[in-house]
Write a protein that binds this DNA or RNA. Structure first.
Length: 682
DNA sequence: GACGAGACTTGGAAAAATCTTT
DNA sequence: AAAGATTTTTCCAAGTCTCGTC
């Protein structure tokens, strides 16, 4: 523990860093050795850097203190544990001691983990573009080979048993497995599937099997369902065996060695073959996603590293040593022809550093956002149509947190749009609507075919421009016909190094969280109330970013259950209250002669209070759940909200961090949890 | 610029794990 | 201990943005 907390302060500055980074177009990470340990990008202005460096110094101290506290806690607990062990060691019944012991083990484990954590954020950065110096891993793991159907399971065509070739059978199973899913009822899906399936058939099969509707997948489907069922009702022992096997897999393939540190890999499994499931009205849904062979896979590792061994009888497509990229393996997928990668887990240095950098860029935007807003407001009056369109697009991106909206190849993906790719049909202008003037009504499908629907009052100049852009256009025409994301981002990067359209989303999300937290939380609230406020702030962001979810299938039920619990608790509360009154009365009449009565009163008081607390907690939970019915908080929490805002809030509000971040989130944000001080400002 | 390849982040659903209740 | 509810993890699709080439 000592070594872990000993501050490795390096007070070095690299003022020219910023200049250099700014010159490169976009934000080209300039990794400078001897950088102060603050932001990873260091493209921000020097004054803040200075201030930050100072802060950092203080932080080291408090950090050290925190560590000390922790270790003290640990020793205390260890002692307690030892005490507890003796009376306990004979007959291990499920006792309080057992539970306590388990908890202590957990704490211990946690601290061990804490100690072994790579505190990369305290280290110097590599030079520009270098992602690692050493990388070694065991390659990806491949899905098991296809197991032919047992003899008692048959495929039928036109009511007659047909024994399929292995390849055709495997693909038949893919379809049969999905029979309960909506996908298999969709025309496009079925047609795509059938076309691809037939490619896998032998000539004879192809001649025979001409109509998907005549295919009998019933037995195969039933077999699959039985398998799923069997998995569910496995005994404890069987489950343990499976768990062990999985663990072995993770141990072998789940980690890599990156610059002397063991890092968890995010997705070490090659994606198994199956049927492509696009989102929304995807023209390629149902196509066969082919099995990937080692011969399709490119391995990336360092020259000095042991090259992963391909599965027996196979070889890799290529082994390369490119330390300008972060992936360990890649292959080209056959549906869109895009490349898939094996990369590190979110808690890794490579991902963490990038994440940190992202938030630093967003904070930099904070310092110049006023200028940029003035600029695009001016541009609304430009003589250049292109400039005006850019200004309006920026207005939307800034105000509504719309995505950039790259152009997409028609027919390759579902028809979705972002800001720059909005079409005439996606907006409706209202001079007046519901008491507002100059209202733009948006209705389009965004990323993942999630609907964006919003009625937004805009400033007059924007409204007038929109009218202009709509002139002489058809519904299917581009709203911004003189603009694309490339032009937009090029302009943005000229305003600020590293600025792109998506930075606005990050910035507006984070600043909204910070403002909402300030507005909504009271220091005097209790923890559940504070958490409600936190979630509400988080929710405001999710709504801004249009992060929606389908209401959980069990939503109404679970809401009703909770309400029932609340009612039960209310009853219990009133009962406790009467009991308390009773006890008080008794204590009063019989006087203090009976100390037993006094303690009874105290106990009843405590019971009432406990009851009240629990009731409040449940009520708060119910409110939270109701408000969250169709909102997905995860994405913003994980990708848009600077974790330092949350960590600082926790510190200031005396809320333990693990109330807002679960284990893997804490791992991902370890850098922020470690370095953030109470006075952090986004 | 246009365009396509490449690399990386962001996204919700579904599966799996864990917790709670019966 | 089974069942049900809830949380966490996994999965992999779908975006953004950069870079090299013409």
């Amino acid at each position: 523990m000592e070594s872990a907390c000993s501050p490795r302060v390096s007070v070095k500055r690299e003022p020219e860093d910023d200049e250099f980074a700014a010159k490169k177009k976009g934000l080209k990470r300039k990794r400078i050795k001897d950088e102060p340990m603050e932001g990873p990008s260091h493209s921000s202005a020097t004054p803040t850097t200075k201030k930050k460096t100072k802060q950092r110094g203080q932080e080291e101290e408090s950090d050290g203190e925190a560590q000390k506290k922790k270790s003290k806690k640990k020793t205390e607990k260890t002692v307690k544990k030892e005490e507890g062990e003796h009376p306990n060691s004979k007959k291990p019944k499920k006792t309080k001691e057992d539970i306590a012991e388990a908890r202590l083990m957990k704490i211990k484990k946690k601290e061990e983990e804490e100690q072994s954590r790579w505190r990369w954020w305290e280290e110097e950065k590599y030079e520009d573009g270098v992602k690692w110096k050493f990388l070694e891993h065991n390659g990806p793991s491949f899905p098991p080979e296809y197991q032919p159907l047992p003899d008692n399971v048959h495929f039928y065509y036109n009511g007659k048993k047909v024994k399929l070739s292995l390849a055709a059978e495997e693909v038949a199973l893919f379809f049969a497995q999905m029979l309960d899913h909506d996908y298999t009822t969709k025309k496009v899906f079925r047609e795509n599937y059938f076309k691809d399936w037939r490619k896998e058939m032998t000539h004879e099969e192809r001649t025979l099997i001409q109509d998907l509707d005549k295919c009998g997948f019933g037995e195969i489907h039933a077999m699959h369902k039985a398998k799923v069922e069997a998995r569910k009702i496995m005994t404890k022992e069987e489950k343990l065996v499976v768990k062990e096997a999985n663990k072995k897999m993770v141990d072998e393939y789940g980690y890599c060695l990156l610059d002397h540190h063991k890092e968890r890999i995010g997705n070490f499994k090659i994606e198994p073959p199956g049927l492509f499931r696009g989102r929304g009205e995807h023209p390629k849904q149902g196509l066969l996603k082919k099995r990937i062979q080692p011969e399709d896979v490119i391995i990336n590792c360092s020259k000095e590293a042991r090259v992963p061994v391909p599965p027996a009888g196979h070889r890799w497509k290529e082994v390369r040593h490119d330390n300008a990229v972060t992936w360990l393996a890649s292959w080209t997928e056959n549906i869109q022809g895009s490349i898939k990668y094996i990369m590190l887990n979110a808690n890794s240095k490579l991902k963490g550093e990038k994440d940190w950098e992202k938030y630093e860029v967003a904070r930099k935007l904070k310092s110049c956002v006023d200028n940029i807003r003035n600029q695009y407001t001016q541009d609304l009056k430009s003589k250049q149509m292109g400039t005006r369109q850019r200004a309006v697009a920026l207005y939307f991106i800034d105000k509504l947190a719309l995505r950039a909206g790259n152009e997409k190849e028609e027919g390759e993906t579902a028809d979705t749009v972002g800001c720059c790719s909005l079409r005439v049909e996606h907006i409706t202008l209202h001079e007046k609507l519901e008491g507002n003037e100059c209202v733009v009504e948006f209705d389009f499908l965004g990323k993942d075919s999630i609907r964006y629907y919003n009625k937004v009052p805009v400033i007059r100049k924007v409204f007038k421009n929109l009218k202009l852009f709509l002139e002489n256009k058809q519904p299917g025409d581009d709203l911004f016909d003189r603009l694309n994301t490339g032009m937009l981002n090029k302009h943005l990067s000229s305003l600020m190094a590293g600025l792109t359209a998506k930075v606005f989303r990050t910035y507006n999300a984070s600043i909204t969280l910070q403002e909402q937290l300030k507005e909504l939380t009271n220091k005097s609230d209790n923890v559940p109330e504070k958490l409600l406020s936190y979630n509400r702030a988080n929710r405001a962001v999710a709504i801004l970013c249009n992060h929606q979810r389908a209401p959980p299938k069990t939503f109404d039920q679970s809401m009703a259950n909770l309400q029932a619990k609340i009612d039960a608790r209310k009853e219990m509360l009133s009962l406790s209250k009467t009991e308390l009154k009773q006890a008080k009365k008794e204590a009063k009449t019989k006087g203090s002669s009976e100390p037993r009565l006094q303690t009874l009163v105290e106990r009843k008081k405590a019971a009432v209070q406990r009851c009240e607390e629990q009731l409040l907690k449940m009520e708060v939970q119910a409110t939270d759940r109701e408000e969250n019915k169709q909102i997905a908080l995860g994405t913003s929490k994980l990708n848009y909200l600077d974790p330092r805002i949350s960590v600082a809030w926790c510190t200031n509000m005396d809320v333990p961090v693990d109330k807002i971040y679960n284990k893997s989130q804490r791992d991902k944000f370890a850098w922020a949890i470690d370095m953030t001080e109470a006075d952090f400002e986004f």
